[in-house]
Amino acid sequence: MKDLVREFTKGIFKENPTFVLALGLCPTLAVSVTVANGIGMGLAATFVLLGSSVIISLVRNFIPGKIRIPCFIVIIATFVTITELCLKAYSPVLNRALGIYVPLIVVNCIVLGRAEAFACKNSVLSSLLDGLGMGVGFTIALIMISGIREFLGSGQILGHTLIKGFEPVFVFGMPSGALLVIGLLLGLFNVLKNMKS
């Protein structure tokens, strides 16, 4: 039981996909302009991570080691496409919020990374928890980055102005600002990790 809890919590801090494993930085840079975007991308990625981790750990004994990567990619892409089609057809509200992020997840290396590093070697339950934990960690990381960027870059959080008369620093709304924020947070995470150990 304790091990299972650890599978879940490790993705949030100890092996945070963005700040510690440094996976999936490309979509992170691109979408972390506003908090709303960050939450959307985070939720969509969590859902796909969950689904693909479960499916891959289900078929892990059937896939030969030498051709596992193409097999994983086919499985992940199929899962993402099915998710996208279902969202479009049955949930227009959710689709409007997450729509553009779902196809982006195919190129998110966290999904393939977890399939390769964890789901293909572990049971369904621990893969599910691992996927969920990684997704939550990714979402938290995105919210942190986009929160800082939205506040400094446009003086708002979730579209609401917090401080009247605050002069926004536009560079934080640009990709260069994203690199700065991610770099500083990555450093902060490493400092915290070193202090702990």
Binding site: I63, I67, V74, I75, T78, T81, I82, L85, K88
Partner: peptide
């Protein structure tokens, strides 16, 4: 094995697509 996985994936996608296309 790879062909089998691809066939299953393609079949699934075709089925989901034909179900959702009119709705979309």
């Amino acid at each position: 094995i790879l062909a089998l996985i691809c066939v299953v994936a393609a079949g699934l996608l075709a089925a989901v697509n034909s179900l959702t296309h009119p709705k979309i």
